[in-house]
Nucleic acid binder design. Structure first.
Length: 600
RNA sequence: GCUGGCGUAGCUCAACGGUAGAGCAACUGAUUUGUAAUCAGUAGGUUGGGGGUUCGAUUCCCUUCGCCAGCUCCA
């Protein structure tokens, strides 16, 4: 969403200027609204102390320190107060002050968190903005007057740690959002509502796709028959694609002696996330990753330079302990299946492998209806070389390869320092869904750690052993998370090729049941996923149910259809499509599935 | 894990500390239906678990498990 709009802003030196860039103007508007909220809160709840109150991509928040617990009733009251203050056309009054003055000022006001912030600042010249009775330590810029503000709404209350540090005090955060106009605010609220309706947890229940049995298995997914069907279709598609691209599928055990995980380093660095179990007098580990297993498969024989690259793939189910508060439907779980693969290759093959993988990721994500991506190249922090495994020159070479591959693909990307894994630089692809939200799924990562620890090599043409280059890649990430994203992207209305049920046969009355069953049998024989609805209900009832279940086609059969050996096709989007021969419908459906058409 | 909110029938939700209800779903019967809900009846609950206060607890308190909104974390 690109913001349109402009406003007049006031800098901390008191000069004013016109902000034409919509994004920038919106950010100033929201930042100013957060100050207005802070003013309202301090007036309504004397004794509240201030944390910070920045704008965010969706709105703004302000953190407060107070023994009072904010409630939703308080939000309404604060909102009313904000409206009242806004009407008073209060001006934002900036002032430049010295660090010493600032410390003095906020110490007097007992704003100890502000004092802490100020004392950390390097510069000696700081600034404040005064709005009504509220003086805030702030660089600005702000709108000139509260009268210039737009539409706003307070959204939620949450705890937050001071400076995001879980060992520091916990504050209360109030979230809100602001826009230039009421219409934009309404559209945003409508979008929140749409996202709520598409929530995969809700749709998962309504469409009977999966469940989480909270009482016995928090954070673990039970795939119901329909969800499992979708998953099977995804897996079959991927398997076929990968095998045709030279990947070899394996299965590796879910548990292994902890020595494997000591060798890999996970026991040392990933221990907090691992489940362990005693077996006789030893300890076994439930695998949190597939890499060591794939390395063992690779190392089961001496590998010649001639057979590289070796691409080992697995729909590998891993388990990781995640803190209870982080679990979220299918998107954040404790057990999940990665569409994982490890590529073992020679240094001269890496570039082709990266390009090959990016091509594959692009093709596969597009098949699922995602055509907008953001790409990130994450590299190490050059100031902290000790945090990373491998040699600096390995890192430089790897980055060059990744950047070259991206260039050859013609993709724009963000280079982010310090975001790499400790074991190697990586490319991440975030996809953007139907509601404009981004999800990080595909990843392509160099690994300088495991090959060294396991001494993974190949025999070169010189008949000597050489270290292998290992890359880890996942295209969908995990099937659980991908399924969750897919459900929300389609709002539960899967395209024909993924729909667990592609068509429902709806007989008009009981005397058409026999024909309906015959239609079902014929279509099944043609590989159409079809169910005949033979319940004692009226046509409208069954149509409604099939619509709500988001089945792509409903096939109504009565006297006319029996007579002509046809079905009356109803499309979930466009309604009644008229009659069609059974075989024609089968062929059309198969074609829609084969082409992975997004409609209907 | 932390802060706050929440946990009642398969689902969505009611019930001033005083006999736990409704709609949908399920089941039974009637109806034989032409493109988004046919009618009637029946059954369904240790109110997440455990403990406490009380004559009496879905309601108040403690504890535990889980969920939700965030925070933190997420190779």
């Amino acid at each position: 969403m690109t913001a349109q709009g402009s406003l007049k802003a006031i800098r901390r030196d008191g000069s004013t200027y016109k902000v034409e860039n919509g994004e920038e103007a919106l950010e100033i508007l929201r930042h100013s609204t957060s100050h207005l909220m802070a003013l309202a809160v301090t007036e309504l709840f004397p004794g509240v102390h201030l944390g910070i109150g920045p704008p965010t991509s969706e709105g703004f928040y302000y953190d407060f320190e107070t023994p009072h617990r904010f409630t939703t009733e308080d939000l309404a009251q604060i909102e009313r107060k904000m409206e009242e203050l806004k009407k008073q056309n209060l001006r934002f009054v900036p002032s430049i002050i010295s660090k010493a003055q600032a410390v003095e000022l906020f110490r007097k006001k007992s704003e100890r968190l502000k004092v802490e912030l100020i004392e950390e600042r390097d510069g000696q010249v700081l600034s404040c903005y005064q709005l009504g009775s509220l003086i805030d330590f702030c660089t600005g810029p702000h709108v000139v007057s509260t009268g210039d503000m737009g539409a706003f709404k307070l959204l939620s209350i949450a705890g937050s740690y001071w400076k995001g540090d879980e060992y520091r005090e916990q504050l209360q955060r109030i979230y809100g959002t602001a826009f230039f106009t009421e219409e934009e605010l309404d559209a945003y609220v409508a979008r929140l509502e749409e996202a709520r309706k598409r929530d995969h947890r809700r749709l998962g229940k309504e469409l009977d796709l999966f469940s989480v049995q909270d009482a016995v298995a928090p954070g673990l997914i039970f795939w119901h028959p329909r969800g499992a069907k979708v998953r099977t279709l995804i897996e079959e598609y991927l398997r076929e694609k990968l095998e045709s691209r030279g990947y070899q599928f394996v299965y590796t055990p879910h548990i292994a002696r902890n020595v494997l995980w000591r060798t890999s380093g996970h026991y040392e660095y990933f221990r907090d996330n691992m489940y362990t179990l005693p077996v006789e007098d030893e300890e076994y580990v439930l695998k949190p990753m597939n890499c060591p297993g794939h390395i063992l498969v690779y190392q089961s024989a001496k590998r010649s330079y001639r057979e590289l690259p070796v691409r080992i793939a697995e729909f590998g189910t891993v388990y990781r302990y995640e803190k209870s508060g982080t679990l979220h439907g299918m998107l954040r779980v404790r057990g999940f299946t990665q569409d994982d693969a490890h590529i073992f290759c020679r240094p001269d093959q890496v570039l082709d492998e990266v390009i090959h993988t990016l091509d594959l990721a692009e093709e596969i994500l597009q098949s699922f209806g995602f055509d907008r991506f953001k790409v990130t190249l994450s590299v190490g922090d050059p100031a902290q070389p000790q945090d990373y495994a491998g040699q600096p020159e390995d890192w430089r070479r790897a980055e060059t390869v990744l950047a070259e591959a991206l260039q050859k693909k013609g993709w724009e990307y963000n280079r982010v320092e310090g975001e790499a894994a400790f074991y190697g630089p990586k490319i991440d692809i975030q996809l953007i869904d139907a509601l404009g939200r981004s999800w990080q799924l595909s990843t392509f990562q160099f690994d300088f750690n495991l090959p060294a620890r396991f001494k993974v090599t190949y025999v070169g043409s010189d008949s000597k052993e050489h270290p292998v280059v290992m890359v880890h890649r996942a295209l969908l990430g995990s099937l659980e998370r991908f399924m969750g994203v897919l459900i929300e992207h389609y709002g539960g209305a899967f395209p024909v090729w993924l729909a667990p049920v592609q068509a429902v046969v709806v007989p008009v009355s009981q005397r058409h049941h026999e024909y309906a069953a015959a239609v079902e049998a014929q279509l099944k024989a043609q590989a159409v996923r079809v169910e005949a609805d033979l319940r004692n209900e009226k046509v409208g009832y069954k149509i409604r149910e099939a619509q709500l279940q988001k089945v792509p086609f409903m096939l109504v059969v009565g006297d006319r259809e029996v007579e002509t050996q046809t079905v009356s096709v109803r499309n979930r989007l466009e309604g009644d499509q008229g009659n069609m021969l059974i075989m024609d419908f089968a062929q059309r459906t198969r074609e829609l599935a084969r082409s992975k058409s997004i409609k209907p």
